[in-house]
Design a protein around this nucleic acid. Structure first.
Lengths: 299, 299
DNA sequence: ATAATAATTGTCATATAGTGGAATTTTATT
DNA sequence: AATAAAATTCCACTATATGACAATTATTAT
C-alpha cells in the first residue's frame, strides 16, 4: 500500500536490539512508529531524519539496506547500462532503452528521454547496423542543450555527459568538459561525484588524444589537453587515490607517444603497468599492456 | 519552522531550470510542491523519493547539498573526532565529548553515550593526566556489550569499534573483529562501509602485531593474524583499490619483521614506500618510511 | 503454570500533509 | 509600455500523518 520503508526500519531496529519506545523517544509517539513500521502509514521526512539520527544511521545506508543491499536506482541504471555496453550486448541495451522510453512516455519526465539517448549512444557504437543512421543530430542537440542549461552539475549530469561525449564534436567536448569541471566544483569532497569528475576529465583527454590508428597523423589539441591534465593534477586526485594516479601516469605516457616522444611515453606506460603488477592487479595490468601494444602497432 | 528540505529542493530545481509543474508531474500537486518548497509544510518520505527520482538525484546527494555541501552529521562526527585525536587536541576532544554527553542526557538516547565513550578512549590515549585512571572498566563493558548485541554491523558500529579497539584485551579484539567481519558481510558492495571493514581488519592486525618497542619479544598471535590477513585478501580488496593493496604490502612486511624475517620484511616495506613515491604520494611515503625506521630502531 | 512486567497494537481525536482551481505575480513578446 | 503566456501563490477543502491512552500480546521471573 505505502512505501515499505517502515518495514525496513523495523528490521534494522530489531537487529540492533532496540525497542519501539527507545527509537521513538523524543521523536514521535510509540503508537505511530508501530503503525509506520507495519506499513500502515507513510512518514514525514523530518521525522524520518530524526529517527535515523537516533540509531546513528544515515539515509544512504538506510536506503541501501532498504533496496536489499543494492545501490539506488540511479546508480544501478548507470551500472547496468555500462555493463551492457562493455559486454557489447545490443539486445540488453535495447531492452534498457525501451524501459526508459516507456517511462518517458508514461510520466512525461524529460530526464527519462535523456537516459534513453545515452543508451542510444552506446547502441550506435556497439551495433554495426547502426553506423549508417547514427544518433540523430537533434537528439544530440537536446542533450547538450540540457547540459549547458543546468547551473550545477551533479552525479547525474556528469555521468550522462561521460557516456555521450564520444559522439560529440571535439570543440563541443572541450567546452562541455570545461563546464563540467567548473559547474561541479562544490562536490570536490563528495567521493562519488568527484570520481565522476575525474572520469570525465580522463575521458576528455583520451578523446582528444584521438583513436590509436591516427597516432602517426598531426594533431592540434596540445593546449587543451594540458589544460585538462592541469585540472586533474591540481584538484581532483588526493594522495590516497592511487588508481587515479596510475591512470594519470599511463595517460601522460600515451600523450607523450602521441606527440612523438616515443621513448619517454613508453617508459611511463611501462611504469604504470609495473606498478599494477607489483600490487597483483593483474587484470588491469593486462589491459594496459594491451593498450600499449596497440599504440606501438600503429607507429 | 519545518525542516528546510523544501528550500534546498527549490534551489536545485531552479539550478536545473525545471518548473514546479514539471517537477510535480505525476507525483504531487503543484500547489503543494510550492508550499513545501517555501518551507510551509513538511513532506512525506514517499513523495520526496519520487520527486528526487524525477530529477535523477539520489537522497545522499540531495542531503549533501542540503547540508551546504558537507557530509552528514554522522560522518562529520567521526571526522572531527578523529582529526582532534590525530592533532592530539585534548580541549577539542573534551568539547566534542561534552556535546555528546549533553545529547545523551537531553534525549536519553544511548548511542550518544557510546559516542562520548569513544571520544573518552581517544582522550585517554592523548592526555597524559588520564593515564592513571584510564577509561572505566564498566564503560568498556557497555560498549562491547552493545557491539556483541547488534546483529548486523553497519557504518556506525564499525567506526565505533575501530576507534575503541586499542583499549580492549587482545582476546576480546580477536572475537569482536571476527564478529565485525562476519556481521557486516552484506555491505561488501557499499564502498563507505567496506572501507570501514577494511580499516577494522588493518587496525586489528596492527594491534595484534603489537607496539614497535616489543618487536624483540616473543609473540603468540601468528595464527590469528594470518586469519585476518586472509579476510583482507580474499574479500575486501578489489583490483582497483590500490591504496589498500599498498597498506597490505606494508603490513605484511611489518609482520615478517615481527616474526624475525627481517630482510624479507624490510624489502616488502621498502617496495610499498617506493610505489607511493613513484606516484608522488610523498606524505604517505614519508609516514611509512618513518614507521620502518622506528621498527629498525627497536631490533 | 502463573503472575508481573515489558513491548506492541488498536481506537479515536486532531493537526497537518496534500488537492483543485482561482487569483496573483513573473517573464517574455511586440 | 501593454499584452499574453507561463509560473507561482492563495484559499477552501479532503485525506492522512501523528498523538494520548486503553487494550492486547510477548517476555521474564518466580
Amino acid at each position: 500500500m505505502f512505501t515499505e520503508y517502515g518495514k525496513t526500519l523495523r528490521m534494522i531496529r530489531k537487529q540492533k536490539g532496540i525497542t519501539l519506545e527507545r527509537l521513538a523517544d523524543g521523536v514521535c509517539s510509540v503508537s505511530f512508529l508501530s503503525k509506520f513500521e507495519r506499513g500502515e502509514s507513510d512518514i514525514t521526512l523530518g521525522l524520518m531524519t530524526r529517527l535515523l539520527e537516533n540509531i546513528m544511521m544515515n539515509f544512504d545506508e538506510f536506503l541501501y539496506i532498504h533496496h536489499d543491499y543494492q545501490p539506488d536506482k540511479l546508480e544501478q541504471f548507470f551500472k547496468t547500462t555500462q555493463s551492457a555496453y562493455l559486454n557489447r550486448d545490443v539486445d540488453q541495451l535495447r531492452k534498457l532503452k525501451d524501459v526508459q522510453l516507456k517511462k518517458w512516455k508514461q510520466y512525461g519526465v524529460e530526464t527519462y528521454h535523456y537516459n534513453a539517448l545515452l543508451i542510444e549512444v552506446y547502441e550506435s557504437i556497439v551495433d554495426k547496423d547502426y553506423i549508417d543512421k547514427g544518433v540523430q543530430e537533434s537528439d544530440i542537440r537536446l542533450l547538450s542543450d540540457y547540459l549547458f542549461r543546468v547551473e550545477v552539475w551533479g552525479y547525474y549530469e556528469l555521468m550522462l555527459y561521460n557516456g555521450t561525449l564520444l559522439l560529440l564534436h571535439p570543440d563541443l567536448v572541450i567546452m562541455l568538459s570545461r563546464t563540467a569541471y567548473e559547474k561541479s566544483a562544490r562536490f570536490r569532497d563528495y567521493a562519488k561525484v568527484n570520481d565522476a569528475i575525474t572520469s570525465v576529465l580522463f575521458n576528455t583527454i583520451v578523446f582528444l588524444i584521438g583513436p590509436v590508428n591516427r597516432f602517426h597523423e598531426e594533431f592540434t589539441y596540445q593546449k587543451e589537453i594540458s589544460e585538462f591534465f592541469g585540472y586533474l593534477e591540481t584538484v581532483a586526485i588526493p594522495e590516497s587515490n592511487l588508481i587515479e594516479r596510475v591512470y594519470l601516469l599511463q595517460l601522460k605516457g600515451a600523450y607523450d607517444m602521441r606527440t612523438g616522444k616515443i621513448e619517454v611515453g613508453t617508459e611511463k606506460m611501462n611504469q604504470a603497468i609495473e606498478l599494477l603488477k607489483d600490487l597483483n592487479s593483474t587484470k588491469m595490468a593486462n589491459n594496459m599492456e594491451q593498450f600499449l601494444m596497440q599504440i606501438k602497432q600503429f607507429l
